[in-house]
């Protein structure tokens, strides 16, 4: 039985008896090969995602021609509907449509939105910035909140641990839309400190959406981080450092933090994906323009080109973020760096 199936172990087996030169060349070859694999793999993922979405959208009930005619509320006669279908090539056989879609996709053409009557690339370009700002700020805020809570409760004794634990668990269990509504009720309607929607320019309109997205995520990250932090603080290394007189604060910052961060970094790739899903809810609650709301809206009105565009875009982002989080993990974990 062959047990060594994981391709990541290849770099181990190559080096052994060779000279330095051949070793370096081999390593370069491996890196190139792995890079090639990655690019091929990424292209494959994008193709599969686009194909999956394309055919799934055909299974969905409802006629995409409605999106072309101004949404499901239109009163277009059948003649107008048929004319619209012909005008947009929706009367062609499915495989022909798929072929022409793929052909365009390869050249980077995502087509035109049925409903917005703009190129999909332009629609996404306009919305992507909004969502990225929201997601990145939320991720950063979640990290800060989770780390702060983890640091505090890991050092604050039993009660602090319990409170920290409860806070994390409860905030991870709060639905976004409920949290968002509560924040609006308190900070916009009652206190009138912050705007309820993101219409106004500037940072003010971002605070509540970012918090809404960050708090549940912080709870989730915090749970993961605190576990490994506690382990790290009780590790032989920490105990000996303490014995050498290192302060608790410096210990937690220097040593435990890095350990705590490790699973968190690994999770960030996942978190980014879940933030995009969360963005759908948050952008709806706060009436914020963005990819999430665009996705929901386009699925609901069957604006197929936009749905496919969002899917391809999110997949691309996911691939990039995974790559970055791999790199970050390698950087934070010396064991992986050596490999």
């Amino acid at each position: 039985m062959s047990l060594d199936t994981d391709n990541r172990t290849t770099s181990h087996s190559i080096a052994a008896p060779a000279t330095r030169d051949t070793e370096a060349r081999a390593r370069l070859k491996t890196v190139l090969r792995l890079t090639g694999f990655r690019i091929l793999g990424a292209a494959g993922v994008l193709w599969a995602v686009a194909t999956l979405a394309f055919f799934a959208m055909r299974l969905v009930p409802g006629d995409p021609v409605d999106a072309l005619l101004g949404g499901p509320g239109n009163n277009a006669t059948e003649e107008v509907r048929q004319a619209t279908r012909e005008l947009n090539g929706l009367d062609r056989p499915l495989l022909v449509q798929y072929g022409s879609y793929l052909g365009k996709l390869v050249t980077g053409d995502l087509g035109d939105s049925y409903q917005l009557r703009e190129p999909v690339a332009q629609v996404l370009g306009e919305q992507l910035g909004n969502t990225l700002v929201l997601a990145v700020l939320a991720l950063a805020t979640a990290w800060v909140l989770a780390l702060a809570l983890a640091l505090w409760s890991a050092r604050g004794g039993k009660v602090a641990t319990l409170v920290g634990n409860l806070l994390e668990v409860v905030s991870a269990a709060v639905p976004h839309f409920w949290l968002g509504s509560l924040l609006i009720l308190v900070f916009s309607v009652s206190l009138q400190w912050l705007p309820a929607t993101s219409g106004a320019p500037g940072i003010e309109g971002l605070i509540l959406p970012v918090l809404t997205l960050a708090i549940p995520l912080a709870g989730f990250l915090g749970q993961v981080m605190r576990e490994s932090m506690l382990t790290a603080m009780n590790s032989p290394f920490a105990i000996s450092s303490r014995a050498r007189g290192e302060s608790e604060a410096s210990l937690s910052l220097r040593h435990a933090l890095r350990h705590a961060a490790l699973p968190g970094i690994g999770l960030s790739g996942w978190a980014m994906g879940s933030l995009i899903s969360g963005a759908v809810v948050v952008e709806t609650v706060f009436a914020r323009p963005g990819i999430g709301r665009t996705l929901l809206q386009s699925v609901l009105v069957r604006d197929v080109p936009v749905v496919l565009g969002v899917v391809v875009l999110v997949a691309a982002i996911y691939i990039i973020v995974t790559l970055l989080s791999d790199l970050a993990e390698r950087w934070a974990d010396p064991r992986l760096r050596a490999a």
């Binding site: 309607v189 705007p195 309820a196 929607t197 709806t284 706060f286 009436a287």
Partner: peptide, 19 residues
């Protein structure tokens, strides 16, 4: 002329004077 489809958010925006 803003598009603010969520009922709760729209009313909150009116209450807080944003619209």
């Amino acid at each position: 002329w803003r598009f603010l489809p969520d009922h709760a958010a729209r009313f909150a925006a009116l209450q807080s004077g944003e619209v």
